[in-house]
Design a protein around this nucleic acid. Structure first.
Length: 425
RNA sequence: GGAGAGAUGGCUGAGUGGACGAAAGCGCCGGUCUCGAAAACCGGAGUACGGGCAACUGUACCGUGGGUUCGAAUCCCACUCUCUCCGCCA
């Protein structure tokens, strides 16, 4: 949520920012409602002030044994009715403003490239190149089926299209990746590991910005009004909802592996083969709560933590700086990491690292106290995949495949897998 | 699923419808004393919003939302959450 104070102060800058993201601009309407709200609130406060004074006098008189004059009571009654009216209309204006604010995306940082869609994204860094295998490689869905490590048919039998089941060495490889990534981030990058609920309440989804706008992409249990998380970012953001984090605790760095559930309705018909785009997948997620001044630098470090995974797995990858029109709703700046997959000859997005500035903190009412006695402030929040499992599996399978279709396990994973190769049958 | 208890400031915990934004204790911050500390004593300290350049000031907030009343932490209704016991269960 962006700040109403900022809209009052610099409406034009905000109009420009919203336009750069290709969104409709509600600023005029917001300003009007805000003015109405302040007018009503001021008047109501003044009336209450008078009422409080008189009521105090009535109280004193009562305890001195004097009954209040009927006309005074009558006047107070009238004031009460007026306050009720003003309160109702102020409340209405406030609700409308909040509703509109909730639907405004975060403001892009100044250095974010301006553009309408992914064509305007900028290549920020390249490590390695789109290499060739030197022989005719297979896409992962054929490889995995041939090796018997992923069962697409039976996955669909259980849960429908875009669900899959890994078997044997495939399942073990995924588990090894998860354990290794968590160990790396906790051991070398300073994160604290979390194990989280995969199902959350409505207000938690609102706090992270997924509701009300993106209900379409979420699975939902009607009976209990519970929502399946699309990413661990959702529960982690809400850990400190409605709290003031005491001095000296920031930065807080968390890492968690969770399943992620996405309906992918907008992508119907796209990427239907293999495990590139599925309804349920595992992801290791990094998350930071930091002081505002350090969030830009924190994003670079977070990105580095995700890249370190790619480096140690021997991937070729590139980092994209997303343009204004391509960023997620809560992000003020986003880097995507794409790794090269030699089988389907494609760059695959394995990570998205974002600085959400104070956007999520405001929505979820998360504050921190810079020091003893200081006023509470909004921390900045950052999140980044570290990494998403299916696409990492794809890259390992496709890039490390041999002419006989066996797959060589990256060195760093071998202590976790217990084998150094997935043999062809 | 059944039965019961509860929700008040950072924590513990008082609070007969009128001086209650709220006792007291602990913890915290500042000061006196001390070479320094502890103890003791004195003082300070919630959050949000509005108005004001500011000092300041007004309003709201005792789980949430309604109601009664001139006036609600206190009375009434609904809801949410927490805890305890019983049952079932990985």
């Amino acid at each position: 949520m962006i700040a109403i104070e900022q809209i009052r102060r610099e409406p034009d800058a905000i109009r420009r920012a919203i336009k750069s993201r290709g969104e409709a601009d509600p600023i005029d309407e917001i300003l009007e409602l805000d003015a109405a709200w302040r007018r009503d609130k001021t008047e109501a406060d003044e009336i209450r002030n008078r009422r409080n004074q008189v009521n105090r006098e009535i109280g004193h008189a009562r305890s001195a044994g004097q009954a209040p004059a009927p006309e005074v009571i009558e006047e107070m009654r009238a004031l009460g009715r007026r306050v009720d009216e003003l309160e109702a209309s102020a409340q209405q204006a406030e609700d409308q403003v909040r509703e509109m604010l909730l639907n405004i995306p975060n403001l892009p940082l100044d250095d974010v490239p301006v553009g309408a869609d992914s064509d305007a994204n900028r290549v920020y860094r390249e490590e390695g190149t789109a290499t060739d295998l030197g022989f005719e490689g297979l896409p992962h869905w054929e490889l995995a089926e041939r090796l018997g490590i992923i069962d697409f048919q039976r996955g669909a039998k259980l849960s429908g299209s875009r669900f899959y089941t890994t078997i044997g060495a495939g399942a073990r490889l995924e588990r090894a990746l998860i354990a290794w990534m968590l160990d790396l981030h906790t051991g070398e990058h300073g994160y604290t590991e979390l194990s989280l609920p995969a199902v959350v309440r409505r207000d938690v989804m609102e706090g992270s910005g997924n509701l009300p706008k993106f209900a379409d992409n979420l699975y939902h249990d009607d009976e209990d009004d519970l929502w399946l998380i699309p990413t661990a970012e959702v529960p982690i953001t809400n850990l400190y909802r409605d709290e003031i984090i005491p001095p000296g605790q920031l930065p807080l760095q968390y890492v968690a592996q969770t399943p992620c559930f996405r309906r992918e309705r907008a992508a119907a018909g796209r990427d239907t083969r293999g495990i590139k785009r599925v309804h349920q997948f595992n992801k290791v997620e990094m998350y930071q709560f930091v002081e505002p001044e350090s969030s830009a630098e924190a994003l670079e470090r977070l990105l580095g933590h995700a890249e370190e995974i790619c480096r140690r797995l021997g991937f070729s990858w590139r980092v994209l700086e997303l343009c204004t029109g391509d960023m997620g709703f809560a992000a003020a700046k986003t880097y995507d990491i794409e790794v090269w997959a030699a089988g389907c000859q494609e760059w695959l997005e394995v990570s998205s690292c974002s600085n959400c500035t104070d956007f999520q903190a405001r929505r979820a009412n998360i504050r921190y106290r810079p020091e003893q006695g200081a006023r509470p402030q909004w921390p900045h929040t950052l999140n980044g995949s570290g990494l998403a499992l299916p696409r990492v599996m794809i890259a390992i399978m496709e890039n490390n495949q041999q002419p006989d279709s066996s797959i060589v396990i990256p060195e760093v994973l071998r202590p976790y897998t217990g084998f150094d190769r997935i043999e062809a049958p």
